[in-house]
Design a protein around this nucleic acid. Structure first.
Lengths: 106, 106
DNA sequence: CATTTCTATCGTAATTCACCGATCAACGCA
DNA sequence: TGCGTTGATCGGTGAATTACGATAGAAATG
C-alpha cells in the first residue's frame, strides 16, 4: 500500500464522527444499517451524515448495498485489516530495529 | 484512548508529507535529525516543514530535543504503538471476524 | 399514477488546511 | 559585541473541509 493510500484512509478515520459512524454501522450490521439509522444516532443533519459516509466510501472503508428504498452500508473489515498491516509494517520500519538498516531492500 | 485522540493522531498521519517526515526522522535518528535535514529531503519551504512538524508534535508522535542551535526530533514509538493498540482494539470491536493487527517486530 | 420515504447531491457559509515568503528570537562563534 | 545559522512564528492566499437547508430522483406503497 502506498503512502497516499495510507494517508487517505488515515484522514478518513481522522474525524470522531466518522469513527462513530463506523461503530454504528458495525453494531447494527445484523439488523438495520441504513443512513437514517446512522443519522438518528448523531446530532447532525442527514446531508452531513451522508457526506461523512461518502468519505468512508471513497476510502473503501465501507461498501454501499442498495436495499429497496434504503442504502445499507457494510464495514469493509478487509480494508481495515489492510490498513492495520500497512501501519504496523510502517511502524516496524520506523522502529529502532529498522534504524540499523542503512538501505532497505524493497 | 478516546475517539478524539485517535482521530487527532489519525489526522496527523493523514498526510503523505507527514508520513515521509516520520520516515526521515527515523532514518536519521542515529545521526542528525534536525529540521534542516528534513527540509532538505522535501520539495517544500522550511516554514511548511516546520508546520508539519508542529502537527506531529501536537499529536505526540514526535518529541523536540533542543541541541545547541538546532532542534532535533525523536519519533515517539510508544505513541505509535499506543495508536496501534487502540486501532486494533477498535477494529476488533467493529468486527469479530478477520482484521487482526500483526504487531510483530521486523 | 400519485404519494410517501429515503438519501445523494447541490448551493452556501464558516472554518480549517497547506503552502509560501518574511521576520525574529536564540544560540554558537569569532 | 557583532555575525551567521537555525527554526518557530506571523501574515496572506487559495483550496479543502465541515456544516446546514433545500432539492431531486429512485423505490415501495396505495
Amino acid at each position: 500500500m502506498q503512502d497516499d493510500d495510507i494517508a487517505t484512509i488515515m484522514r478518513a478515520l481522522g474525524h470522531p464522527v466518522r469513527l462513530h459512524i463506523l461503530r454504528i454501522l458495525a453494531k447494527q450490521q445484523r439488523g438495520e444499517c441504513c443512513c437514517a439509522d446512522v443519522t438518528e444516532e448523531l446530532p447532525l443533519a442527514q446531508s452531513t451524515v451522508s457526506q461523512h459516509i461518502k468519505v468512508l466510501l471513497d476510502a473503501g472503508l465501507i461498501e454501499r448495498k442498495p436495499r429497496g428504498t434504503r442504502n445499507c452500508y457494510i464495514v469493509q473489515h478487509e480494508r481495515l485489516a489492510a490498513l492495520g498491516s500497512a501501519f504496523s509494517g510502517m511502524v516496524a520500519k520506523l522502529g529502532p530495529a529498522a534504524a540499523k538498516l542503512e538501505s532497505e531492500p524493497a
